[in-house]
Design a protein around this nucleic acid. Structure first.
Lengths: 219, 219
DNA sequence: AAAAGATTAGACTCATGAGTCCAGATAGAC
DNA sequence: GTCTATCTGGACTCATGAGTCTAATCTTTT
């Protein structure tokens, strides 16, 4: 639940080891199947130490989601804060598309591939029984990144680089989702027998083109 | 796993009762938490009878997903087979939009609200340990409905009512997903404190308009 | 080097749940 | 009315796992 004294005492290296092990095991087994014993073993730490650091399995799980989200969110924010060119520089014909392509590629890779996707599934399936989980996940992840992406896209619209209807602009996060959702769905549909990198690239391009087709100013 | 003799013997009424109870309990508790005892109790049947009919918990679960999917798929197919006007009749200015709106509304309601969504989460979270589950789910659901929707949309393109690039048309199911994914994501983001029906309607309209903005022929 | 805090292995409690077994009840077929 | 398949309830086995407890050991601080 809330942070208690139990969360801040003890050897930080062990704490880190437990967190890493927990991430591994939760991702491999799912929440219910993952046993605290297995986590302790994987962290090369006694079970009691796990309980000293995190109190119980739920708290440990939330610590894991927080940690993973924090890493991904930091990446994404950095990307948007300094990895995207100023609108005034996007003057050439393909400039906007290229910049959006870079942005979307990195975003989708961070959010729709890697541990975050699987962790989200776990949160989702546990959320029925611990509603605070879903709320926490949202607040700590999408609740921070989507508004930022939406702001970035809105600025492009304000700069005249995108032609977006007023009611779409008025809806929080909508524009960001319209860029992100079709691409994400498309990427998740890549089958294991396909060449992932090639498909990934193709689908990101498709998603961006779909978005641009809807909102690129018509000359 | 595969169907055995155990699946076809016994009293059909009891079988039905077990299936209904299992649906209820799995949806309420999730796969691991749901106990066969609880299901038997809910079905007013002895535990042994459950095992007589379905062999084990896994088989029972798959029977549940099959049954729920079959209902939804039947609805959706009917919708597309006879609920959508012939392209030749869509001559008036708002006709296409209205027809797409009806179709999308019904589709999204069937697939993104109701028991199917929650069941899909369960399948998803169990699929790590039973890969055949995911495959079965796909084959029995999206594998049937998406091609059909895609065909319908492709026919609209062929009839000149949509202007879709060749490479999008060439990709299986892509067009269907481009209509469905942004709308679905948007609808799933309706928060419990909102007026569901009003939001639902608004978001479906938004999704369709986004789609049309990309692919409506430009005069 | 002694006190205070943290860690360890492993035993222990308690609860839960899948799947089995069985002896008696019941119901449908003929 | 009897025969056969099915159903019942409840006891039983077996495994798993969360969380606690303890006595001994390690580490850090002072």
């Amino acid at each position: 639940m809330t942070a208690t004294a139990a969360d801040i005492q003890g050897n930080p290296k062990k704490r880190r080891a437990i967190l890493d092990a927990a991430t591994t095991v939760f991702l491999r087994e799912g929440f219910s199947r993952a046993s605290v014993d297995a986590i302790a073993a994987d962290a090369k730490v006694s079970k009691q130490t796990v309980y000293n650091h995190f109190g119980d399995k739920n708290t440990l799980f939330m610590a894991v989601t927080d940690a993973v989200q924090d890493m991904v969110v930091a990446d994404i924010m950095e990307l948007m804060d300094s990895g995207f060119p100023d609108p005034s520089r996007l003057t050439g014909p393909g400039d906007l598309r290229a910049a959006l392509l870079d942005l979307t590629r990195a975003w989708i890779r961070a959010v729709y591939t890697g541990p975050l996707v699987d962790l989200r599934k776990l949160v989702d399936s546990e959320a029925e029984h611990h509603p605070e989980l879903r709320e926490r996940w949202f607040r700590n992840g999408p609740g921070r990144t989507y508004p930022r992406l939406n702001r970035l896209l809105t600025e492009l619209a304000r700069a005249g680089l995108l032609d977006v209807p007023q009611d779409v602009l008025a809806e929080p996060d909508l524009l960001a989702h319209q860029l992100t959702a079709p691409t994400g769905t498309d990427v998740r549909r890549i089958r294991p027998d396909m060449d992932f990198e090639a498909e990934f690239e193709k689908r990101v391009a498709r998603g961006v083109d779909f978005f641009l087709r809807a909102y690129e100013p018509r000359s």
